[in-house]
């Protein structure tokens, strides 16, 4: 909670104490030269109050769910974000699932073949994954799979011919499924494929290294040797014993990876014209749209906090020792 208050303070301070001129940015150079226009604008948004007062006003509005009105879109920031957040969550959750599956497979194999050729190959591949500029990869993937090969759909969340599903969760794939619309579901899922694939590559690089290390630590433990000695097959040992033992450190890294995905979406969403948090943040930042910027910072801060909470709860679910402590 204290951190949340800190987050609002940081976004507020940053956007106010730095030398950008939001008035000129919002009104345009011509209108900003007219003192009467500027005066009206300043009064409308309370920009002439002392900063602490402006901050308290902002906090008061926040308590009522009012994030202010975006200077760029002219709509309330809260409603802008209400459509943007699910779009980003949809990408991020899919990317986490995909990269977790791939990275677990790669990391486990690398740990079993420690120091052999396979291990070195996995190491180099994951380092390359960490080195890829995602915005460039997004561009290349879009050009290759959509424009040249034509096997992936274009930008956005849906083909223009389809109407969005009735909003239940805001995640198009889930909403289509709840609506029983299989055509819409397939189309929404196909639009997800490229952005998710591009974002996953970086996360796979991040996760593989850590999963390898965690699996290595467990592999030498006595209970794994005991399981092998009992004559259990390698598959059952890995799934039931090794991965279960390694799940706590993996969970920690997944939390961090989710954060890195939120960063990645900013760069990838603009390439795929994906109407999510990243695109919105970029528009707000380039228009010096203060309420928009603060809204994004706040929402991302909240997502982070919720994420940490979920990770903490899952610790207890996965490891009884945490519950007892």
């Amino acid at each position: 909670m204290l951190l949340l208050l800190g987050v609002t303070l940081v976004t507020f301070t940053l956007t106010n104490l730095v030398p950008g001129d939001p008035i000129a940015a919002a009104l345009g150079e011509g209108a900003a030269a007219n003192p009467a226009t500027v005066q009206a604008y300043v009064e409308r948004y309370g920009l002439d109050d002392p900063l602490p007062v402006q901050y308290l006003t902002y906090l008061g509005n926040l308590a009522h769910g009012d994030l202010g009105r975006s200077l760029a879109t002219g709509r309330p920031v809260a409603s802008d974000l209400a459509t943007a957040v699910p779009a980003t969550i949809e990408i991020a959750v899919c990317a986490v699932v995909v990269s977790l599956l791939v990275a677990t497979a790669l990391g486990t194999v690398a740990a079993h073949r420690r120091n052999l050729v396979t291990d070195q190959v996995v190491r180099v591949v994951s380092l390359i994954g960490l080195s890829l500029p995602t915005f460039w990869l997004a561009l290349v993937a879009y050009d290759l799979f959509f424009r040249r090969l034509g096997i992936a759909p274009g930008s956005g969340r849906l083909s223009p011919s389809l109407t969005p599903p009735p909003t239940i969760t805001g995640l198009y794939t889930v909403d289509f499924m709840l609506d029983g619309d299989s055509v819409g579901f397939v189309d929404a899922a196909a639009h997800l494929a490229l952005p998710v694939g591009v974002l996953s590559l970086f996360t796979i690089g991040l996760l593989t290294r850590f999963i390898r290390t965690s699996v290595l630590e467990v592999l030498d433990s006595e209970y794994v040797r005991a399981a092998r000695a009992k004559g259990l097959g390698p598959g059952r040992v890995v799934v039931g014993y090794v991965l279960r033992g390694a799940s706590l450190p993996i969970l920690t890294v997944v939390g961090i990876a989710f954060g890195s995905l939120l960063s990645g979406t900013v760069l990838v969403e603009s390439v795929f014209a994906w109407p999510g948090l990243g695109t919105y943040a970029y528009q707000a930042a380039s228009n010096l749209d203060l309420p928009g910027i603060m809204g994004v910072g706040l929402v991302v801060g909240v997502i982070y906090l919720v994420l940490n909470l979920i990770v903490d709860v899952l610790y207890g679910v996965l490891d009884p020792r945490v519950r007892l402590a």
């Binding site: 987050v7 940053l14 730095v18 890195s260």
Partner: peptide, 11 residues
């Protein structure tokens, strides 16, 4: 508490 790119972008 912020993802790096988003904070860097704001700054």
């Amino acid at each position: 508490a912020f993802p790096t790119v988003i904070l860097a972008m704001v700054v």
